[in-house]
Design a protein around this nucleic acid. Sequence first.
DNA 1: TATTGGTTGTGATATTTTTCACAGCGCTAT
DNA 2: ATAGCGCTGTGAAAAATATCACAACCAATA
Lengths: 217, 217
Amino acid sequence: MPIIAVKTLERLILYRRQLLALFSEGKRFVFSHDLAAISGSTSAKVRRDLMEIGYSGSTVRGYEIKSLIRSLGDFIDASKPLSVILVGAGDLGKAIISYFLERREKLVIAAAFDPDAGKTDGLIRGCPCFHTDRMQSFIRENDIQVAILAVPAGEARAAAAALAEAGITGILNYAPVRLELPDTVYVENRDMCMALEKTAFYARASRERVTMREGFS
Amino acid sequence: MPIIAVKTLERLILYRRQLLALFSEGKRFVFSHDLAAISGSTSAKVRRDLMEIGYSGSTVRGYEIKSLIRSLGDFIDASKPLSVILVGAGDLGKAIISYFLERREKLVIAAAFDPDAGKTDGLIRGCPCFHTDRMQSFIRENDIQVAILAVPAGEARAAAAALAEAGITGILNYAPVRLELPDTVYVENRDMCMALEKTAFYARASRERVTMREGFS
DNA sequence: TATTGGTTGTGATATTTTTCACAGCGCTAT
DNA sequence: ATAGCGCTGTGAAAAATATCACAACCAATA
Ligand SMILES: NC(=O)c1ccc[n+]([C@@H]2O[C@H](COP(=O)([O-])OP(=O)(O)OC[C@H]3O[C@@H](n4cnc5c(N)ncnc54)[C@H](O)[C@@H]3O)[C@@H](O)[C@H]2O)c1
Ligand SMILES: NC(=O)c1ccc[n+]([C@@H]2O[C@H](COP(=O)([O-])OP(=O)(O)OC[C@H]3O[C@@H](n4cnc5c(N)ncnc54)[C@H](O)[C@@H]3O)[C@@H](O)[C@H]2O)c1
């Protein structure tokens, strides 16, 4: 039912990044197997993924990087540059703001919101930070669709509900909490504990594999 | 070929978290459909996932939470509590340290490493922070397997290579860079830009879906 | 004791995603 | 010309993952 598979979208986003790097290195064309190699994919997958967005290359030169980047952008990005808001200007929130300042992408953090009086109505590294009271009206007035949620776990559900009520349709959630929201809101969970547990699991598996191999040699 | 599917592992980790919450609420038994509801899964998937780790419940009471948590732990966790190191004590790194201080999990950050003289040989919120020079010997002496990588993009490749050389088998990578490492090292990428682009994409899709539905009603 | 009701564990089936493999193409070199 | 090469686009097969659906189970109840 979804127009495109999640995994395909992730790869498309990755391809675009790698293509931008290639382009800035002066490359103008790329073959599916090269793009695969630098993206950790396979040539067949690359070709299939690009087929998905209706892009065609040449059998002789491969894909023209510039136009492919444009096609990927047409597919991935919104027509207008997208504003997002940050909810929760704690340690993580501040790190996110400073991270986004460096990068000049299509995605910009329009404002941050935090109930803590010490931080409100000021600027965090150039990004305006308002009191949470003003969050919903800001979303409505500026037609914000996406929010990054970096509030304490105990606050996450309530904050997410407020976001959904104000019309947000996508939440990037850093709190280790499952948000239960109407399915009009897309939630992407970035749970650090989960990521670390997963990494630890495969680290262990990897080490055991190596140990086993040594046993054979 | 992998002993367990990635997605299954992710769900198992999630189940455990939800079960811990249920247990602390005083619940002692849970049915597959309840666990599914709070984990965003389905009852069939829950049952299959638990089958995967060889856990059995009762048809009458469901699963006994305490023993299920134990079984999940046996499967997911290492036998000893696992130490991880943090590489790069910048904004993100510091946020990660303070995050892990709050939580008392099986996973502990043993030390941080940063080449910046202003931070070295000191403590960051109680976590020892050493100069990068000492990183490899620390890994070897303490038999560290897992590292969290939060260095600037330009440094990521070199830092990852150093980690791999010292024997790290799992890297949780926050830099927006694809690491090319021998396949003895498991790499989990947590690319924030990718996450945000993905969220924005589905936010847009969701909004369009809603708009379309309104058109029908 | 027999019936009911609601659950698990799991074969069987359906769907999704990946991989295979090759026809067909356009450039190059002869 | 035309043969050869190495690539793309894609149908078809395979593999991975999710879903269905039901026998077997057991406590509660009549
Ligand atoms: N620090 C990390 O590296 C890290 C990593 C992964 C996940 N997380 C999660 O991200 C969240 C934030 O982490 P942190 O370390 O920045 O915590 P923090 O306590 O430093 O910051 C949380 C901020 O949210 C604000 N806040 C509280 N309620 C709010 C509300 N209703 N609306 C808006 N803002 C509100 C607080 O005033 C505070 O400034 C937590 O849920 C944490 O579990 C953190
Ligand atoms: N800040 C965020 O929220 C955020 C989010 C996603 C991804 N990232 C990525 O995470 C990384 C770190 O982000 P940040 O905001 O903390 O950057 P930062 O510049 O604040 O911190 C980077 C730290 O790494 C240290 N460092 C440099 N080279 C090193 C090396 N070889 N070994 C160990 N440490 C080294 C620096 O001294 C600095 O303290 C970047 O790659 C960034 O793109 C950051």
